[in-house]
């Protein structure tokens, strides 16, 4: 079957600096792919290219087998825009500070679906409920929310569009473990019910293990290892992956032991 999303030889430079050197992967329809790796190795930049926020310097992106830039008609482009949603690493900067949470979710529904105001209101509360937000938060603005609350708003907003591919960039990092568990279960439920696919960018290897089957490891702008998530975590091959695996805090962990080399680009 054609992968729902495929990256082929992606490269991105800013000025003379290489942010992404060479990234390829394929995401199966209904699949879930983890991207882990060094801070500054190009994970967010890769995701931004996938959703069309950055133009690749080289390489191409296929959505359902078709190159992204080839979507000519407006309707088709809009369909694409709805089809790939991203939850950003920094929820605050991606939310409009003047807009209430409810109107932010409502807007997404209005843009994408022919629904009446009542239908939208009902769907807004349903979405809020899914991620554990209550009515008070819906009426508030992003400024009055804690870090984890903002992150949940961002997840609800992305789900509102009913995407085919959901890219989560460190989207569960700011959540405490009990809410995180609820959100991870929710993501699993949605995947069971629909054919949605996920790309999960995360520094939390246990979270990656829990909700992805395949993973790629990025280091200095390139994919250095890829394969089944369990295999990568249990039998890491690349030297960087091994160091990553050895740095996870746990019993007997000594900070500063697994020394990293400097950032990429």
């Amino acid at each position: 079957m054609t992968p729902i999303l495929e990256a082929q030889g992606l490269r991105k430079t800013f000025g003379g600096n290489v942010a992404v050197a060479d990234v390829s992967f394929a995401l199966a329809r209904g699949g879930s792919l983890g991207i882990v790796g060094e801070s500054g190795s190009g994970k967010t930049t890769t995701a931004r290219m996938l959703v069309g926020l950055e133009v690749p310097t080289q390489g191409r992106i296929l959505f359902d087998g078709e190159p992204l830039e080839r979507a000519r008609s407006t309707a088709r482009r809009r369909e694409r825009a709805r089809g790939i949603q991203m939850v950003f690493q920094d929820p605050y900067s991606s939310l409009d500070r003047r807009q209430t949470i409810a109107s932010c979710l409502d807007e997404v529904l209005r843009v994408h679906f022919p629904m009446s105001a009542e239908q939208r209101a009902a769907r807004v509360s349903e979405l809020a409920d899914l991620v554990g937000l209550d009515d008070r938060m819906l009426r508030g603005r992003p400024g009055a929310l804690s870090g984890g609350q903002r992150q949940r708003v961002a997840i609800a907003r992305a789900l509102a569009a009913e995407p085919e591919v959901l890219i989560l960039d460190e989207a569960v990092a700011a959540l405490d473990v009990s809410i995180q568990a609820q959100v991870l279960n929710l993501l699993a439920d949605i995947r069971e019910r629909t054919s949605i696919s996920y790309i999960l960018i995360s520094h939390d290897l246990a979270v990656v293990r829990q909700i992805t089957e395949e993973a790629v490891v990025m280091y200095q702008g390139a994919v250095v290892e890829s394969g089944p998530t369990a295999k990568i975590l249990d039998e890491p091959q690349h030297e960087y992956t091994r160091r990553l695996r050895a740095s996870v805090p746990g019993p007997g962990w000594v900070p500063g032991k697994a020394l990293a080399s400097g950032g990429a680009a």
């Binding site: 882990v36 060094e38 700011a174 740095s247 020394l259």
Partner: peptide, 21 residues
């Protein structure tokens, strides 16, 4: 306040080493 949530575990380990020192 959550100083290492955006860091990979290898860098996190390094940063925590500095704070410990």
């Amino acid at each position: 306040d959550e100083p290492t949530t955006a860091l990979d575990v290898t860098t996190q380990s390094e940063v925590m080493g500095i704070l410990n020192r």
